[in-house]
Design a protein around this nucleic acid. Structure first.
Lengths: 127, 127
DNA sequence: TAGTATATGTTATGTTATCTAACATGTCAA
DNA sequence: TTGACATGTTAGATAACATAACATATACTA
């Protein structure tokens, strides 16, 4: 309860966030438009990000890379914020994400009669 | 060696540093002019501060409030960076600062035949 | 007492960083 | 092909920051 303070404090400007996440300003603003991140604003309306925001952005980046679209990410984030999942958040969430992704990919594959999901794409969920 | 990374990373812009330290931009720039802090710069020459810089600024603020002038602070910082004092840095430094301050104040008092140093001013060094 | 140094305030002027909004484009699936 | 999605690009406006010069209060010094 001193670390929480810092992680949620909006200290970082756009430029730094671009560097830390490897995302473009356009991407970051788009994700905000889609309400996936909600950076604070200065009096002059400039975005200020917290470390938590960085985590969120990195997760978005990762999920997009995995093939989940914005709508899917929205769902996942909603699940995360649902009070049901507040025991061992970390692990539970991973499972949920996994299932969401697999489900989406399965549906895709079915609809297209093809295997859009190569083995390698799930490897990071196993060990 | 993962925390060092973060503490020395220049992530913070002027505005945030002003808020975190309670110093004005003028003060911060002046301290840099006096080479007490050396913030990084963006390509566009804008200052970017690290958490270490914040610590330094807060220390400057504190020392100034205690009555030490810029020259004195410079000395103290030089002592800190001297390789001699690299065992139990924390404690040793406090002592050095204390002595430096006391010395300065004593000289002042002597020259002026007055007691410029009230008891209360040193109270924070004792317990 | 008059003069000087120190640390900071204030103002002016230019540059960099960020904003919003609109339009363009590559990719993929229907 | 057509359309949706995610992102690129550009334009024009504003916010944030830069340097530099001058002003000033306080505290020392002569």
């Amino acid at each position: 309860m001193e670390k929480e303070w810092r992680r949620s404090m909006p200290l970082l400007s756009m430029n730094i966030v671009m560097q830390l996440t490897g995302l473009t300003a356009r991407q970051i603003r788009y994700y905000e438009e889609q309400e996936l991140v909600l950076p604070a604003r200065t009096e002059g309306k400039q975005r200020m990000f917290s470390l938590d925001d960085i985590d969120t952005l990195l997760e978005i980046k990762d999920l997009l890379k995995t093939g989940v679209n914005i709508a899917g990410i929205k769902q996942i984030f909603e699940l995360k914020n649902s009070p049901v999942v507040s025991k061992d958040v970390r692990k539970v969430i991973s499972d949920i994400e996994l299932r969401a992704i697999v489900k989406e990919e399965m549906q895709l594959a079915q609809r297209q009669q093809r295997a859009s999901l190569r083995q390698g794409d799930l490897s990071r969920f196993y060990r």
